Simulated scan of single mutants.
Amino acid sequence: MKLVNYYVSNFANSSRVGFILNGQVIDVQHAYQKWLQSQNEDASFAKVTHEMPADPNLFFSLGETVLEKAKLAYDYAKDAGITGLDREEVRLGVPIPEPRKIICVGKNYADHAAEMDSDVPEFPVLFSKFSNALIGPDDEIEKSSATEQLDYEVELAVVIGKEATKVSREEAADYILGFTIGNDISARDLQKRTQQWLQGKTLDRTTPIGPWVVTKDEVGEFSNLAIRSYVNGELRQQSNTGKMIFDVPYLLEFITNLITLQPGDIILTGTPDGVGFAMNPPQFLQDGDVVTLEIENIGKMENKVVER
């Protein structure tokens, strides 16, 4: 199931959770109400809004609790032939606009560490982003005048499905709700002027996430996914998530032995080689550039860079 945060202009521009079915966006709350009615259960507004929140932040904060109900709604919509809105009629936002935590992993592909003239780390390199940086798949990447070295990084993003503390790698998959695509846009000049990377990693409206969260059952083997990025149609990065130094189960074990993760938290798992900074000469993003990211079994996301 592909879960989206969508906007419709005649809906007071408020964002709502939907899912993709037959190329259309179906409102998950509406589909859940229809399922309740089909079961001759209470389908009152109060019950539906309590059990199936339309707000994306609240929806994902409930994790697997609400996901099971959403799957019932999805299966019913598929069987009943419920239709929704065409993709062109909606704008997709960040699937989770304000996650409690955005934890990022640096230098997690050996080839990328090498191209950045860095040693392979002994432990995962962790840093954070804040929600001010997040934008959706239909939004523009804002190039701030504070940087002249804006760079792209395609990354597999993990969405947590239930509270996770001291999780072992063997049980890590049980705590994952799904996956999405992240572009860890980095201002290299700001990132590298101090030992702490934060200032180069969380500029306003620079980090696309999307286009949807794909539930883990649909993604399948997440340790073997093709991952690519393009700039203006030119292939820049091409790798596989199997080349991570620290795979997803290890990352969940490592992080949750330090930090308790909550439903809706996001982990950006690192980028492979091929970034603009490492090219000869370096190729940084400019006004008007279009960055396209692809991850196997998840989809494609495309954002334009606009100087602001």
Rank of each mutant, 00 (worst) to 15 (best):
K201M: 11
I227E: 03
Y175P: 08
R188M: 02
D217C: 06
L190P: 04
A133P: 05
F222W: 08
G210E: 08
Y152N: 09
I135C: 07
I227D: 08
Y152M: 02
A113I: 13
D174T: 11
V120M: 11
D174L: 11
S118W: 01
I209M: 13
P208T: 10
N232R: 03
A173D: 12
L235C: 06
R193M: 11
A114G: 01
D174E: 15
L190E: 06
Q199E: 15
T180A: 08
S186C: 09
L198D: 05
E234R: 13
Q199G: 12
K201G: 08
S223C: 14
L156P: 09
S145K: 08
I227G: 02
I185G: 01
P121V: 10
Y152C: 04
R205A: 15
G161K: 00
W197M: 01
D217L: 09
E142K: 05
F123L: 15
S223D: 15
K162L: 05
S131G: 04
D204S: 10
E234Y: 03
S144Q: 02
N232V: 06
I135D: 01
T207C: 13
T215N: 08
S229W: 05
V159I: 15
M116F: 13
A146P: 00
K129N: 03
K201Q: 07
D151C: 02
D111Q: 14
Q196V: 14
R193A: 01
I185E: 00
D174A: 14
I176K: 13
R193F: 02
L235R: 11
L156I: 07
P137F: 00
D117I: 04
I176T: 11
I181A: 07
D119H: 07
D189M: 07
A146R: 11
T147R: 01
K216Q: 14
D217H: 07
E218R: 11
V120S: 01
Y152H: 15
G210Q: 08
I185W: 02
L235A: 06
D174R: 13
E155N: 10
P121Y: 13
V214M: 10
S168G: 07
E171C: 04
Y230L: 12
E218A: 10
V120G: 05
A226F: 09
V219L: 11
V213E: 02
K216N: 03
